[in-house]
Design a protein around this nucleic acid. Structure first.
Lengths: 188, 188
DNA sequence: CGAGTTCATGTCAGTGACTGTCATCGCTGT
DNA sequence: ACAGCGATGACAGTCACTGACATGAACTCG
């Protein structure tokens, strides 16, 4: 065993989730999170660039999942089909962690600062999707609108899925309902 | 004339726009903005809750314009028609200020923090639109998807409109193109 | 006119987020 | 054994933001 207990990063994430949930994001100092994790404030900021980011540590891996799934779809599929395949993979990866995600979402909803950060994360997803759709031959402008629509729809579906009281529907179903709702809106 | 020069708030906004543009948002302290405006840091934070918000001072008035225009549409119009009327009014109000908006947008694009804030502002617009669409008889879930789609589309169109090099199209045209692009995406 | 009120601002002290820098010391490889 | 690496601690510093209180011109009311 090393000089320090292992998994400092994970311990910080767990401590943050607990403390933010108990006392609220604004009431918890970075030093308090670090202390709970048996580390110092300085180490907190070595692992995470700021107090918010600690709640979004898994985001990147999920984005890769999503992107990889879209990229795996045959090129002769439509952009919509490719996107839907990505969302299928993504929602599949999310489904088992619903409980933790609900807790995390409850924290995020209570803090405007965290909500800001969440929106930026989604914007990064949209940017990634835009790139892929372009590579698949969609025009740049169309790709942006498509990607933004897809991520926005996903976001709203995700919010419904994690809103309390919980609905029974699977996340992917909510996403599909979202797309049909958007289409209904635009047709009339 | 009062004890102080008038229009402190406006002077702060002008100073912030200039300094942020010159040196970049992160490099400018609130104290520096205040000093340029002939005021103290404390007064800066009396007018604006934080360093970012000073760039979004007119947002609320614009949102009211938008909301009022949507509300003014006869109730027998479709949600899409009502939304489009709101966007028509909004884009009309924006069109004359393009130059200033381009400068502001350039600043915002260079700072992740400011980008965060911008997205939250748009989210507030979506929430307002959701409320109105509900009042007009649209179901809650449909209203959310519709409102989010509309504001997202507007945002992307606005980004294109303020991107350099500037395009010739009017903002409202870009919004309409956006809606058709979204529809194309969803149909296939 | 004079006393009290308001209101935008100044002053000052404090907290907490974040950063730069250097020291520490188990572990790893030679 | 020795050298260097890498995660951490220690500490000082900057800056965003806040609370409390002071100031003085303008405004109000008798």
């Amino acid at each position: 065993m090393g000089r320090w207990k292992p998994d400092g990063r994970r311990r910080l994430q767990d401590a943050a989730l607990k403390l933010y949930a108990e006392r609220g994001f604004a009431e918890v100092t970075a030093a308090a999170v670090a202390e709970r994790a048996g580390l110092t404030e300085r180490t907190f900021f070595r692992h995470f660039p700021d107090k918010k980011e600690i709640l979004f540590g898994d985001e990147e891996a999920l984005r890769d999942t999503f992107v990889a799934a879209v990229a795996a779809v045959p090129v002769d599929a439509t952009p919509y089909e490719a996107t839907l395949a990505g969302l299928k993979a993504l929602t599949g990866a999310l489904q088992p962690s619903r409980e933790r995600l609900v807790l995390r979402t409850r924290i995020i909803r209570q803090s405007p600062e965290l909500r800001e950060r969440e929106l930026v994360k989604l914007a990064a997803w949209a940017a990634a999707l835009t790139t892929i759709l372009c590579e698949r031959g969609l025009g740049p402008a169309d790709a942006v609108f498509a990607a933004e629509t897809a991520t926005t729809t996903f976001r709203v579906a995700f919010e419904r899925w994690t809103a309390e009281p919980l609905v029974d529907d699977a996340l992917f179903e909510l996403v599909q309902e979202g797309f049909t709702a958007v289409e209904r809106f635009l047709r009339r």
